[in-house]
Lab assay of single mutants.
Amino acid sequence: MATVKFKYKGEEKEVDISKIKKVWRVGKMISFTYDEGGGKTGRGAVSEKDAPKELLQMLEKQ
């Protein structure tokens, strides 16, 4: 499965596409929420050019 690499609050993070719950576009950025486990929801964003094609496909399906 594909992963998304991004920075959040200065920390490098990587999340599996299957854990992503919601995806939306903000200008040229793709924002998303994902399941961190333990009932927590994380947030992240990547630029449109750095987003994996699976993430862009999720955006188109909504």
Results as ranks from 00 to 15, higher is better:
28 K>E: 12
57 Q>V: 06
47 S>G: 13
18 S>R: 09
12 E>T: 10
45 A>V: 07
39 G>F: 11
4 V>Y: 00
40 K>R: 12
46 V>R: 02
23 V>Y: 06
46 V>F: 02
9 K>S: 04
61 K>P: 11
13 K>L: 05
30 I>W: 03
29 M>E: 10
21 K>H: 14
30 I>D: 00
20 I>G: 00
7 K>H: 05
29 M>H: 11
55 L>V: 08
29 M>Q: 08
22 K>C: 15
14 E>W: 04
15 V>R: 01
24 W>I: 03
3 T>Y: 04
42 G>C: 08
60 E>W: 04
28 K>M: 09
45 A>N: 11
11 E>D: 04
13 K>R: 09
15 V>I: 11
8 Y>F: 08
36 E>T: 08
61 K>L: 13
12 E>Y: 08
39 G>T: 09
39 G>Q: 06
35 D>L: 09
49 K>I: 15
27 G>K: 15
37 G>Q: 11
20 I>S: 01
3 T>H: 03
10 G>E: 04
11 E>V: 04
28 K>T: 08
40 K>N: 13
26 V>T: 14
26 V>F: 05
45 A>I: 11
37 G>Y: 07
54 E>V: 06
29 M>P: 02
62 Q>S: 12
53 K>H: 08
14 E>D: 03
53 K>M: 13
47 S>K: 08
20 I>K: 00
22 K>Y: 15
45 A>K: 06
26 V>L: 04
18 S>H: 10
28 K>V: 10
27 G>P: 14
11 E>S: 05
28 K>Y: 10
13 K>W: 02
41 T>Y: 11
23 V>I: 10
25 R>W: 14
14 E>C: 08
6 F>E: 00
55 L>S: 00
3 T>V: 10
16 D>P: 07
24 W>S: 02
44 G>Q: 01
33 T>R: 09
29 M>Y: 13
26 V>G: 04
56 L>P: 02
11 E>C: 12
8 Y>S: 04
17 I>S: 03
41 T>C: 15
2 A>N: 05
33 T>H: 15
24 W>C: 10
59 L>M: 14
29 M>S: 07
36 E>P: 06
25 R>N: 10
62 Q>T: 08
13 K>A: 03
60 E>C: 15
56 L>W: 10
62 Q>K: 03
24 W>H: 03
16 D>S: 09
60 E>P: 13
59 L>C: 07
34 Y>H: 09
31 S>G: 05
9 K>Q: 13
13 K>P: 00
29 M>V: 09
37 G>P: 10
61 K>E: 06
55 L>R: 00
58 M>C: 13
30 I>F: 13
40 K>Y: 14
18 S>Y: 15
60 E>L: 10
26 V>H: 11
54 E>L: 09
21 K>R: 10
3 T>I: 08
26 V>K: 14
8 Y>Q: 04
18 S>E: 15
3 T>R: 06
60 E>A: 15
53 K>I: 10
40 K>Q: 14
4 V>H: 00
20 I>D: 00
61 K>Q: 08
26 V>C: 15
6 F>Y: 04
41 T>H: 15
22 K>E: 14
13 K>H: 05
59 L>Y: 12
59 L>A: 12
20 I>Q: 00
58 M>I: 13
9 K>C: 15
36 E>I: 06
6 F>H: 01
57 Q>K: 07
42 G>N: 09
1 M>A: 09
25 R>G: 08
12 E>D: 11
4 V>M: 02
8 Y>K: 04
62 Q>E: 10
13 K>M: 11
31 S>V: 10
23 V>H: 02
17 I>W: 01
37 G>L: 08
24 W>K: 03
31 S>P: 07
3 T>Q: 03
25 R>Q: 12
44 G>A: 11
57 Q>Y: 14
27 G>Y: 14
43 R>T: 13
2 A>H: 08
38 G>Q: 14
56 L>M: 11
40 K>A: 15
51 A>Y: 02
25 R>K: 12
13 K>Y: 09
5 K>N: 02
31 S>N: 09
62 Q>A: 10
18 S>F: 15
52 P>D: 03
21 K>Y: 15
28 K>G: 12
34 Y>C: 01
37 G>T: 05
14 E>Y: 03
26 V>W: 06
54 E>Q: 08
46 V>S: 05
17 I>F: 04
52 P>H: 05
27 G>W: 06
24 W>Q: 03
37 G>N: 10
19 K>V: 14
10 G>W: 01
17 I>L: 10
34 Y>L: 01
28 K>Q: 08
60 E>Q: 07
55 L>P: 00
53 K>Q: 14
15 V>H: 01
3 T>D: 01
58 M>Q: 06
42 G>R: 07
45 A>R: 11
46 V>N: 03
36 E>W: 08
6 F>C: 02
28 K>R: 12
51 A>M: 06
47 S>W: 13
35 D>W: 11
43 R>W: 09
39 G>A: 11
33 T>W: 12
2 A>G: 11
19 K>R: 09
15 V>L: 03
34 Y>V: 02
27 G>S: 13
56 L>A: 15
37 G>E: 07
22 K>G: 13
50 D>H: 05
2 A>L: 13
19 K>L: 11
25 R>Y: 07
2 A>W: 02
23 V>L: 12
5 K>S: 02
29 M>F: 07
36 E>Q: 14
17 I>P: 02
5 K>L: 03
17 I>D: 01
39 G>P: 07
40 K>T: 13
54 E>I: 05
38 G>C: 15
24 W>P: 00
46 V>Q: 03
24 W>R: 03
14 E>N: 06
61 K>V: 10
3 T>F: 06
58 M>G: 04
16 D>L: 11
61 K>S: 12
30 I>Y: 10
22 K>Q: 13
32 F>V: 03
12 E>Q: 07
13 K>C: 04
16 D>H: 06
37 G>F: 08
5 K>A: 02
30 I>H: 01
12 E>V: 10
10 G>V: 01
45 A>P: 01
56 L>G: 06
55 L>D: 00
50 D>W: 13
20 I>N: 00
10 G>Y: 02
48 E>K: 07
8 Y>M: 03
7 K>V: 11
50 D>F: 13
40 K>W: 14
57 Q>E: 06
56 L>H: 11
33 T>I: 10
41 T>L: 10
3 T>S: 05
32 F>P: 00
4 V>K: 00
8 Y>E: 04
26 V>I: 07
45 A>L: 05
47 S>C: 11
51 A>C: 05
8 Y>A: 04
35 D>G: 06
30 I>G: 00
62 Q>L: 11
41 T>R: 11
55 L>H: 00
53 K>T: 13
58 M>E: 09
26 V>S: 09
2 A>I: 14
58 M>A: 10
1 M>Q: 09
